[in-house]
């Protein structure tokens, strides 16, 4: 059993789900069984945004040590602002709005890559400084902006089938597709190869720089798209809407069983980790513990899940 878990890579992400189910059950007990299903529904809805940004972050982190995208929060805000102004509240403009948000992300991602490649700035500094530029652009762009999303978009983000949000179902399909990209395409295999050893990957004929460019662009494009969707869900654009995704995007990736050292990544873990983080806060809120204790327990439980997942010796 243990050997099978290790061989298939299931152990990498299993503990995120164990953690999520555990905190959910505890929440249900605290609330005397009240609202068990609705809590899960709320979690599945919010998890969509975390999973989308974390998918991009995961590909970036998988390309090896030092690779990280800190411009995600600013790109979410700018993508939301661009999308809402293109949509201008009209249902007919929803698709162009999303395309504009993705295009914004592609521009930001290419800019990030240019800083990293041409100016040889380490990714953590390059994406941090570009986030200042992007956030300032969002502030400048967002002044006096009409902020309401089109009704059809808002209705879509609230729509459900059997208590499961429709956008969650769509996002699950998307992550399944990305899992195939990661495992079965030249691009996905290149990301993992670079993450394990960029020199060896280069000698094996992988176009290292092109892969990096695609990866940073993918991350920013997903952030821009997420911003547009999130603006629909939360009823408009606000300048601070992206801030919550900075640490969350990284935490979801790590709790989900992706190696920070690069070269190992998986998509199922992102859902488990996003649900775990959401339900953890819900559990502590429902228990009514003070903010100090809550932050302490959040830290301790995150460490517990990561340790449980990586505690034994990893087989390859």
């Amino acid at each position: 059993m243990a050997a099978w878990l290790a061989r298939t890579g299931v152990r990498d992400w299993l503990f995120a789900y164990v953690g999520a189910v555990t905190v959910w059950l505890v929440t249900v007990v605290i609330a005397d069984g009240f609202g068990a299903m609705q809590t899960l529904t709320a979690g599945l809805g919010f998890a969509v945004f975390y999973v989308l940004v974390a998918t991009g972050q995961m590909f970036v982190i998988a390309t090896g040590p030092g690779n990280i995208d800190l411009s995600i929060p600013a790109t979410v805000t700018l993508g939301a602002g661009v999308a809402m102004s293109v949509m201008a509240g009209s249902d007919a403009m929803i698709v162009p709005g999303f395309l504009a948000a993705i295009a914004t992300g592609i521009a930001v991602g290419s800019f990030n890559y240019a800083l990293i490649r041409a100016l040889r700035i380490p990714p953590i500094i390059a994406t941090l400084s570009s986030s200042f530029v992007v956030q300032s652009t969002a502030i400048w762009y967002g002044r006096g902006l009409s902020i309401k999303p089109p009704d059809a978009l808002q209705d879509f983000t609230f729509a459900r089938v059997l208590d499961v949000p429709v956008m969650t179902l769509v996002a699950v399909l998307f992550t399944m597709a990305m899992a195939v990209v990661l495992r079965r395409t030249v691009y996905g295999r290149s990301v993992l190869a670079i993450g394990q050893n960029p020199k060896a990957a280069h000698l094996a004929g992988v176009d290292v720089e092109r892969t990096r460019w695609v990866t940073y662009t993918l991350s920013a494009a997903l952030a821009g798209f997420t911003g547009a969707l999130f603006a629909g869900f939360s009823g408009g654009v606000s300048l601070d809407m992206g801030a919550q995704f900075l640490l969350a995007s990284i935490a979801v990736v790590v709790i989900g069983g992706t190696s920070v050292a690069g070269g190992r990544a998986n998509l199922p873990g992102l859902w488990g980790a996003a649900l775990f983080l959401f339900l953890l806060v819900t559990m502590l809120n429902a228990a009514g513990v003070g903010s100090g204790v809550r932050q302490l327990l959040t830290g301790v439980l995150i460490i517990a899940v990561i340790t449980a997942a990586g505690g034994e010796q990893r087989g390859r």
């Binding site: 929440t27 609330a31 609705q38 809590t39 809805g45 919010f46 809407m241 806060v281």
Partner: peptide, 20 residues
């Protein structure tokens, strides 16, 4: 804790609401 932020408040309230 909504952090004076619309989107954070929405998330936190959505989480606790079913238990209330």
């Amino acid at each position: 804790h909504g952090d004076w932020t619309q989107t954070v408040a929405q998330r936190e309230v959505s989480g606790i609401l079913p238990t209330l």
